[in-house]
Design a protein around this nucleic acid. Sequence first.
DNA 1: GTGGGTGCAAAGTGTTTGCAAGTGT
DNA 2: ACACTTGCAAACACTTTGCACCCAC
Lengths: 158, 158
Amino acid sequence: MSTGERVSVKQRFYQFAESQGLRLTTQRMAIIDSAFDTKQHFTAEQLLEWSREKDKSVSRATVYRTLPLLTASGLVKELDFGKAYKFYDPNYADHPNHNHIICQDCDRIVEFESEQIEKLEDEITHNHGFSLRSQQVQITANCEEFKRSGNCRNRDCN
Amino acid sequence: MSTGERVSVKQRFYQFAESQGLRLTTQRMAIIDSAFDTKQHFTAEQLLEWSREKDKSVSRATVYRTLPLLTASGLVKELDFGKAYKFYDPNYADHPNHNHIICQDCDRIVEFESEQIEKLEDEITHNHGFSLRSQQVQITANCEEFKRSGNCRNRDCN
DNA sequence: GTGGGTGCAAAGTGTTTGCAAGTGT
DNA sequence: ACACTTGCAAACACTTTGCACCCAC
């Protein structure tokens, strides 16, 4: 939650970029900073918008060309919630095994971790003769509160 | 695994169709039969291909117009494995909470169930103030056997 | 200086839709 | 007969790419 934590993730990406010999253009820096200055899940379109606030010259093409670099670093994860567009999650550096509850009422996405589920997944995977590489749990849910009152306390959470 | 089981799922869809007042055109029947005559996960394109084997007049548009009917019945589930196209799984009638291991080496998709994971998911969801509507676990895995020998015993499984 | 990076616009890809013609009930 | 369905092709929405120019190293 601290700012220091965030900065360090960004720094980690810059290290990754350097190790790959990637050039640090102003456009790339605007995109990278936008991606790691938030804890929200974002879409390509949102990332473009944020990046343009920092550097008006950023084009959609460059955003799409930069996204694979972000995911290749392992610091951002691509998520597919079944919509036409993908979401990107910048919180995997700190919480590499977190999962998601997607509320159908308020469109909120809540993250959670469970060592017990991780352990079971690992067991099951090995029992089938595989080794686990990555995992993902998506829970689609409703909140009763929203149904009753037309509002939802989870709206404030994020 | 018995044929009887399969037929009954198909019957269940026909009941659903009737209850919704859907007309049973020859095209629809070709598509429905194709969907429920397999236990494999399929894409829209594969479903079109199978349906055309039964009735050459089936068009891509009709397949795409029928897929939402299949999922609306609850007997087929739409799955997103992060590819450009979606997969459809006709095994949800018998195993409504099953999950998937996706092997990166042999592209095999293995299904599994775990009451323990279900229970944990339910707990976690309620603890966050939600009620669970549906869930989905996707495990991406490697099989060591394939890496060593260039082959994979799971290739035969399905 | 030069090779990687960029913006633009065109192309791609899976999916959806308007419309006139066809068909199950 | 009438409303629901269909095939076709055009339209869509998101993403990718070819190309000439640009700029970080």
